[in-house]
Design a protein around this nucleic acid. Structure first.
Lengths: 142, 142
DNA sequence: CTTGACCTGTGTCTTACACACAGGTTTAAA
DNA sequence: TTTAAACCTGTGTGTAAGACACAGGTCAAG
């Protein structure tokens, strides 16, 4: 399979396939014309990489996992351990986004009843300057 | 005020202050010794920038807002318009994180009852390979 | 006057690709 | 058969928002 074929097969982009290839996560054969051809092992490896990405693993994680597996060892323990870290990261980001979203919605609501004002030397926009986060609890969890 | 003082005052880092200064969002005076000194107008401008960042505006957005205000015009209409875009972006990312988090939790649960396996030429880790997203509805909203 | 704590600018690094570009290759039509 | 479209190649750069490094200047205290 060639780059674009492969990309389409798995619903990704040629650039992504090239990217992984650049990082040597994929190792295609090169035909005489200079084109890259991906044999079955590389095809299933791409599938693996994409699945792992969908599970929140970073490309660097994936590299470590592949390295482990290529030593003949089971990568499963590493995978189990890594996903817990990534889940914790995701949870943090998720909470941050939750708070951000709330702030944004609160701002929209507050601003609805405020008029526009012209700026001064110390005030670019009073909407933003006067916004208050509507704190519900003092964040003491971090 | 000097860089580090300013950063501490608003709970950010000197690097962040320097970054905004590099982008000319802040325009400190330079004293003879070469140090940067931030007068009151710049101090309140930093406060503005940080508030805007907390509301999900990008640095680029902020630049546009400041540009608008520096023409003497009210930046409020722009601000109202931009935050709606950013809120939509945030909502999208939020939903994506929600789905990711679910996938990760599902994976953890599924894997709990699976044993480790050694890799083969076409399988790096069966945990990842065999993971199924537990789709609840066919995502047809984008 | 020296030590240590601050400051300076500038340059590089990060993530996971997307996009650009100059040029080689293949394919299908003319 | 010529040629033009449609593919492919590697490599280089851009992205967001800073973090970190580094060589060197400056300042307060002992």
């Amino acid at each position: 399979m060639k780059v674009t074929e492969l990309a389409k097969e798995f619903g990704t982009t040629p650039d992504t396939v090239r990217y992984y290839t650049r990082l040597k996560l994929l190792n295609p054969a090169k035909s005489e014309n200079g084109y890259k051809y991906y044999p079955l092992t590389e095809i299933s490896r791409l599938k693996f990489i994409l699945s792992a990405r969908h599970l929140g693993f970073s490309v660097s994680d994936i590299r470590h996992i592949i390295d482990e597996a290529s030593l003949g060892k089971s990568a499963c323990p590493l995978v189990r351990s890594l996903i817990k870290e990534r889940l914790a990261d995701t949870e943090k980001q998720f909470q941050a986004m939750l708070a951000l979203r709330k702030n944004m919605n609160d701002a929209l609501a507050q601003w609805d009843v405020k008029e526009d004002k012209t700026p001064t030397s110390t005030m670019v926009c009073h909407l933003i300057d006067s916004f208050e986060p509507t704190k519900e609890y003092g964040g003491s969890h971090d």
